[in-house]
Design a protein around this nucleic acid. Sequence first.
DNA 1: AATTCATTCAACCGCAAAGGA
DNA 2: ATCCTTTGCGGTTGAATGAAT
Length: 296
Amino acid sequence: MGRPPCCDESGIKKGPWTPEEDQKLIQYIQKNGHGSWRALPKLAGLNRCGKSCRLRWTNYLRPDIKRAKFSPEEEQTILHLHSILGNKWSAIATHLPGRTDNEIKNFWNTHLKKKLIRIGVDPMTHHPRMDLLATLPQLLCLAGLTGIMEPRAWDDHAARFLQYLLQSPATINMSNFSSITPKMKPISSMNTQAPDTASVPSPGLFPAAISNAEFYGVPEMSFGFHQQPLGNYIKQDSTCNDELEAAMSTPSALLRDADRSLGKGDNCSISSNAGSVLPPSFWSEFFDDPLVPGLI
DNA sequence: AATTCATTCAACCGCAAAGGA
DNA sequence: ATCCTTTGCGGTTGAATGAAT
């Protein structure tokens, strides 16, 4: 059976509030405080349930509520707090004076979440979307790239597809795929120099030594990401930059900072854990039309 | 100008926690 | 310890609005 809803009494008004109702609620609370929300509607002369009154007051009529657009600073704060707290909207709201949990939740769902998805960042984990890589074998196969690559070149191709995938919305279809392949540089022009095998434990971004048959025969294969190996592959002498990792702890600052402060030769890496990115100069080696810079 | 499709956000619903009897 | 009421929270809905066709 369960508890009946609070507003199931017949004749109780629902839906948008009128200016007259707003005035009644404001005047009552300013004079008496809200007291018991359940008792308030009757005392204030409102044909509403207490829950509706509380929501209207806390989300709209409260005098300290900001009505302006979210500033870039507020956006940064929300992104940062969401990466720590998740969907704890009320907890996030306590750090943003004048903003309600409902307002922040709506802003997240309509703007920030989409923005993260657009740049290939999982909005729940705030890390690059590794799930998209699950489609990589099929995409490669369908694109007819099998048999033209040496095993050693897998990392290069994987990196290029990763870059594309991180740019993409959730759904990838083959028309998207065919439109991206012409932008790639010919394989012969790429730097496919293999890293020192001692410095690149296998597997790296892709299995370093695996036949195509083995590869496509295991569609559920997971892709291991190793920060150091890939970094070493890109730049033989690179090391993980702790300062960079720290700077990237705020997800929204991640790509912007990387774009601004990193150049070729800087320390950088791909990592599923740290959420870091490669500098744009790296991608220019692989794409005639690099897409990475200035994502946010 | 009319229609369809997409987006926004105020408001609602149901569940859970808190607190009092 | 248990029950009941109140309040708070997060997910979802749907009317209003804007954009595209």
